[in-house]
């Protein structure tokens, strides 16, 4: 069986992930920029500039940045206390721009989707389980949801089921 390359995130590449997401949910063009695996920077400035609905919730080992777009798409970023995005979850009537929210993990995701589809013809929720990337979907027309995370980046003691 072919094994996928594990795309490790590099610290401090690509700029602010929240900025990326703000651009994503507003449908604006942005040069390729890290999301999953990326870093947190200048949230308040971006929030002010983009007028996106951003809310934050704090847990012991991480912070959730939730972005609600006017197009009914909600994206949540799970950021460790070190400022690294270790998981991204989304829900809405359609899929988000995966390249934007996956950043450096996009190529692995795309390959994972292709292998998943090739393994068994048919229709079913995604469940990609690779070293360095887990990606899952659920739902039906008008109401989809998904999450992606890098198990290696999840802070110790954090249950991955919090990413949703």
């Amino acid at each position: 069986m072919k094994r996928l390359i594990c795309y490790k995130a590099h610290p401090f590449t690509g700029g602010a992930s929240i900025a990326t997401l703000l651009f994503v949910v507003l449908g604006l063009a942005l040069p390729s920029s890290a999301a999953l695996g990326g870093t947190l920077d200048s949230v308040q400035a971006d929030q002010s500039q983009m007028k996106a609905n951003l809310s934050t919730r704090h847990a012991a080992a991480y912070t959730i940045y939730e972005l609600q777009a006017p197009n009914q798409l909600t994206v949540r970023e799970y950021v460790s206390s070190e400022g690294r995005v270790f998981g991204v979850a989304w829900q809405g009537p359609f899929f988000p721009d995966m390249q934007q929210i996956l950043g450096d993990y996009f190529a692995a995701y795309r390959t994972g989707v292709e292998e998943f589809k090739r393994a068994n013809a048919g229709r079913r929720p995604l469940n990609i389980q690779q070293p360095g990337l887990v990606a899952q979907t659920a739902g039906h027309m008008r109401a989809y949801a998904g999450r992606m995370y890098d198990p290696d980046l999840v802070p110790s003691g954090v249950d991955v089921t919090v990413i949703h």
């Binding site: 979850a89 659920a138 949801a145 089921t161 949703h164």
Partner: peptide, 21 residues
């Protein structure tokens, strides 16, 4: 049968689904 898992089902938000195919 297979997995449907997008995380915790607390609060019912996100995607806590039994997908009856």
């Amino acid at each position: 049968a297979g997995p449907s898992g997008t995380g915790s089902c607390s609060g019912g938000k996100g995607a806590c689904s039994f997908e009856w195919g």
